[in-house]
């Protein structure tokens, strides 16, 4: 069955001041799949990721042209509900960044901000999100202790739970395992693969093996351009472009 596209990006160009970080990118992000963005540092992959929930708005010099359509609606049109967008498009960062509060409050924070008052309802959301993030069993007896006492891998899963508590449609992940040890990495990867049943996931990774292991689609960026985008199996076995081949085989530079 062919999947629908959750995002449709048309002729996207992103400028930081006078120079462009991304040029003329066209790409469709399929729903309920894992899309990996790869490429050397400075290639524009994180910039691209951040256009999907308008995180780049926080950078004063940043300006974009082109369209970023979420469910066929341009996220950059005037009056677009940015808070609503970030609720629908959650994000997990490279370094686990739990709030300095209890495990429970970390996950409850989002729903509370959204105006959920009913304690039972919040509790249900928190437990569900922790379960989905494969963390609940490890922390169920210490939900009221500080999140900062968790291990790095647990903290990252807590951040994923915090994002899931907002019931997003899309989850953006910016190198979510690069600060974790190999076992914690595999746990997160395993989790991401499970999450794609319900969420559309876009992940930036510097680990080509990680992209090959978990993603359904891979996009290779180089110097602000989307060089190649396709099914992961195809891109890693028979890439169409020489630049892609050179990068994934480690013969770059």
């Amino acid at each position: 069955m062919r999947k629908e596209n959750v995002f449709k990006i048309e002729k996207l160009t992103v400028y930081y001041g006078a120079s462009s970080a991304l040029q003329n990118v066209d790409i469709d992000i399929p729903e309920k799949s894992i899309t990996a963005l790869i490429g050397p540092s400075g290639c524009g992959k994180s910039t691209f990721l951040r256009t999907l929930n308008r995180m780049n708005d926080l950078i004063p010099e940043c300006r974009i042209t082109g369209n970023v359509l979420l469910d066929n609606e341009n996220c950059y049109k005037n009056g677009y509900d940015i808070i609503g967008l970030r609720k629908r498009v959650g994000m997990v960062f490279q370094k686990p960044n739990p709030f300095p509060m209890t495990i429970y409050d970390n996950v409850a924070y989002g729903p509370r901000c959204q105006g959920v008052k009913n304690k039972e309802q919040i509790k249900k959301i928190v437990i569900e999100a922790l379960e989905q993030a494969a963390l609940y069993d490890e922390v169920k007896d210490r939900l009221e202790t500080s999140a900062l006492a968790l291990s790095g891998g647990q903290q990252q899963r807590l951040c994923i739970a915090r994002a899931l508590a907002m019931k997003p449609e899309v989850l953006l992940m910016d190198e979510p395992t690069s600060a974790l040890d190999p076992i914690a990495t595999l746990k997160i990867e395993n989790l991401i693969e499970k999450l794609k049943e319900d969420y559309s996931i876009v992940i930036v990774t510097h680990s080509m093996q990680q992209a090959a292991r978990i993603s359904d689609y891979t996009a290779f960026f180089y110097m602000g351009e989307l060089i190649e985008y396709g099914k992961t199996d195809q891109l890693f076995s028979v890439p169409k472009h020489k630049q892609t081949e050179d990068y994934i085989t480690g013969r770059f530079g």
Binding site: M208, S237, I248
Partner: peptide, 9 residues
């Protein structure tokens, strides 16, 4: 070496 693409082939 975890080869890919033409190396793996």
């Amino acid at each position: 070496q975890c080869p890919v693409a033409s190396d793996l082939r």
